Computed example of a mutant assay.
Amino acid sequence: MELLKDLTLILLATTVVGHYCTRIGIPAVIGQLLVGVLVGPALLGWITLSHSLESFAEIGVIILMFIAGLESDLQLLKRYLKPSVLVALMGVLIPVIGTYAVGMLYNLGTTESLFISVIFAATSVSISVEVLKEMNALNSQEGTTILGAAVVDDVLAVIILSVLVSTTGTAVGESAAQSSSLLLTTIEQVIYFAAIYFVVRWLAPYMAKIGERLMIPMGPTLMAIILCFGMAYVAELVGLSDVVGAFFAGIAISQTSARSTVDRHIEPVGYALFIPVFFVSIGLNMDFNGLGKQLGFIVVLTIVAVLTKLVGAGSGAKLAGFSWGSATAVGAGMVSRGEMALIIAQIGYQAKLMSPVRYSAIVAAIIVATLLAPFLLRWTMDRVHRHDVDRSKIRPAD
């Protein structure tokens, strides 16, 4: 019964707030994030993040990234592979250096500073995807590069985290055992990415055909959801984020004849229930208790987290030949940390890589940076659009 009450309140609040955010030109996702802060422990305390809500939220982000893959252009992703890798590499390197320096400045010690740098090296583009969809820019060069870079970024963050936990962690199993399994995990991830070709080329089309022959309603959509959840599950088994599996499942289905049917059926399911719960859940992680004494640390960490990702990922795009405006937009699209950073923070906390005192402050910095990300992306993408429109008006002299 408690779950029904929470869902009713969340859906009512996000519907009203989303409507007015859209009317005044603010991304609806901002309203959903703020609803979580408002009704959660940070302010009113009406809703806490229960296990049931976490499950709904996880399904929400999986569906969101599946839709992103479904609506992505595979040829564009291939075309922008090199820029995506450069953006991811620079978008990890610069934040690692910057946030490590912040940790050392506040005398956190080498291990804790290293772990904080890993947290803020991660990127969660689920919020950026939502903003890009609202702006019809998911398949622009900026949107495509952001999506590709997010996948590479996720792999890099997982590898760095695995090394750090296996060499310095004390609570998550034996260090020696983890170190010996690191190579196996890496091999499993390589096999997973190699298997994606098999899924795109053969498995997804075969499942789409089976779905069309099933004598039940929405057969192709059901088969697509099975593929999505299955690939998300296997991704987690090999140490990757489930959203990586969901994204590539969407890519696979997008190459089949069932693409438009699945897209038409899956969006109402996601946006009517699961996706709003996911965005609200990020705000529910916010808690202001005891943060007053760490306000300076939070402010500095948030500023560095935003700027290093913006500069790092943006410089990677610039090195790939993008204009300054487009490079800045790509950097803005990589600023959001979201659920990926929160998951890494939780793993590190359990492995005793960070103190309980700093954990709440780091979660607060993650959420504030995530709240700022949609504004930055909207502003920079608007600038790119205006520049493109102005350039299209220029005509050669007669």
Rank of each mutant, 00 (worst) to 15 (best):
30 I>V: 13
131 V>G: 04
197 Y>T: 13
14 T>W: 06
311 V>I: 15
383 R>Y: 08
129 V>P: 01
343 I>V: 15
74 L>D: 07
173 G>D: 14
348 G>K: 02
84 S>A: 13
376 L>I: 02
338 G>N: 11
232 A>M: 08
251 I>Q: 05
161 L>H: 04
269 V>Y: 02
346 Q>C: 01
103 G>H: 05
187 I>T: 09
168 T>R: 09
170 T>G: 10
241 S>T: 13
396 P>H: 12
264 R>Y: 12
146 I>G: 11
147 L>V: 06
180 S>Q: 14
44 L>R: 13
177 A>D: 10
140 S>A: 10
23 R>L: 13
206 Y>R: 09
384 V>D: 01
116 I>A: 07
299 V>T: 04
39 V>I: 15
30 I>C: 12
347 I>N: 07
61 V>E: 08
354 M>A: 13
163 V>L: 14
234 V>D: 04
198 F>T: 13
175 S>E: 12
259 R>M: 10
181 S>G: 05
97 I>W: 01
236 E>A: 04
292 G>K: 11
388 D>A: 13
16 V>S: 00
130 E>S: 15
255 Q>M: 07
105 L>Y: 14
5 K>F: 09
180 S>P: 03
229 F>S: 01
236 E>L: 02
92 V>M: 14
389 V>A: 08
329 A>Q: 03
242 D>S: 09
317 A>D: 02
248 F>V: 14
278 F>M: 10
367 I>V: 15
339 E>W: 12
115 F>D: 00
227 L>N: 08
256 T>N: 08
246 A>K: 09
64 L>W: 15
368 V>I: 15
297 F>T: 01
53 L>H: 00
103 G>E: 04
3 L>N: 06
212 E>W: 00
18 G>I: 12
310 L>E: 04
314 G>V: 03
323 S>K: 09
313 A>G: 04
183 L>M: 15
323 S>L: 12
261 T>H: 13
335 V>T: 04
333 G>M: 12
57 A>H: 03
196 I>D: 03
249 A>S: 14
340 M>D: 05
136 N>A: 11
148 G>Y: 10
98 G>S: 04
150 A>Y: 09
39 V>C: 04
245 G>P: 12
155 V>W: 11
52 S>C: 01
270 G>Q: 13
178 Q>P: 03
362 I>S: 01
78 K>I: 07
136 N>R: 10
226 I>Y: 01
127 I>C: 01
69 G>I: 11
257 S>D: 09
129 V>I: 14
145 T>A: 13
328 T>L: 15
343 I>N: 03
122 A>W: 05
250 G>H: 14
277 V>N: 01
244 V>R: 05
368 V>D: 00
361 A>N: 05
299 V>Q: 03
107 N>M: 09
40 G>C: 10
74 L>Q: 12
314 G>P: 05
333 G>P: 11
232 A>L: 05
82 K>W: 11
5 K>V: 08
82 K>D: 06
289 N>M: 10
291 L>V: 08
368 V>C: 02
371 L>Y: 00
17 V>I: 15
383 R>H: 03
